[in-house]
Design a protein around this nucleic acid. Structure first.
Length: 271
DNA sequence: AACGAATCCTGTGCGC
DNA sequence: TGCGCACAGGATTCGT
């Protein structure tokens, strides 16, 4: 569920409350996430939160003992802040009690998310080999074209490959291909530089737009301040099969690509 | 090296 | 109303 805009929205929402706070206590109700929550997590108690940042969809929390929490929300996870008088909810797997009487709660029904601890996030196996951030200067059409050189996979699968570019999930992959008028079934190495320039711009644009709208709310995601994301109202193709294309009025089609639902307008997306 | 498929897990919504 | 099934925003891991 959470794609990059949801992760970014989450970070922006919790940052001010977490910064410089001391972690008093933690409660791990269920350590069986994507990978087990390490037992050494208790080491972070009595240390302060020094910084919060994002790499791909990983939330990085730097602590005063020079360790870093790596948190991923998986498909169904979310982080929320509550005062100590709020009750424990189902699937609240981890709770971090802060000195200011807030509790940071990690809730994740499907448990595809993770909470890990590391001394050096840049060298962590989950992070070290990631591709470019979509908002980095280096992320250009030329970069995509070069990366696609020996790739025969469909372009939609290609832009969801985190070794190429991070943060493009299933919703925004369909949306950015619509914006750049590229058919999601096209082989990555058959696309021109010009079209990749359009695609790179479209990816940045669609992600920025969604962050500004507070993310997309489908089923599970709620802005952590109790605010829903509104990007859903701006979706052009995702989950709109058989509905009219906003551009040509033709019928939006649904197809499965690499076992993921994909949506496009056959009339507008030729290549 | 690159690709497709399987996999982890719970909740929801649909057809019957 | 209840049951069974298909499917869901991710991304690693495995077999070819």
């Amino acid at each position: 569920m959470p794609e990059l805009p949801e992760v970014e929205t989450t970070i922006r929402g919790i940052k001010d409350t977490l910064l410089n706070q001391k972690i008093i206590r933690l409660k791990i109700s269920n350590p069986n996430l994507r990978w087990p929550v390490p037992e050494t997590i208790n080491d972070i108690c009595n240390h302060h939160i020094k910084a919060i940042s994002r790499r791909a969809k990983y939330i990085l929390i730097k602590l005063s003992n020079e360790q870093h929490l790596i948190i991923h929300l998986g498909m169904s996870g979310n982080l929320r802040l509550e005062k100590t008088d709020q009750q424990h909810k189902k699937h609240d797997h981890a709770e971090f009690l802060l000195q200011n009487d807030f509790i940071l709660k990690f809730n994740d029904p499907r448990r595809f998310g993770c909470i890990l601890l590391t001394d050096n996030p840049q060298q962590h196996r989950l992070i070290a080999n990631l591709g470019l951030e979509p908002f980095s200067k280096k992320f250009t059409g030329a970069y995509l074209k070069q990366q696609a050189k020996s790739r025969s996979i469909k372009v939609k699968t290609f832009i969801m490959d985190h070794k190429v570019v991070v943060g493009v999930g299933n919703i925004y992959a369909s949306e950015s291909l619509f914006l750049s008028a590229i058919n999601p079934n096209t082989a990555a190495n058959k696309i021109s530089l010009k079209r990749y320039q359009n695609l790179a711009q479209a990816i940045v644009k669609v992600l920025e737009k969604s962050i500004n709208a507070g993310g997309t709310t489908l089923k599970d995601f709620h802005g952590n301040q109790g605010k829903a994301g509104y990007f859903q109202q701006q979706l052009e193709v995702y989950d709109r099969q058989n509905q009219a294309c906003h551009r040509c009025n033709g019928k939006i089609k649904k197809t499965i690509i690499a076992q993921r639902a994909s949506y496009y307008c056959p009339n507008c997306q030729h290549w």
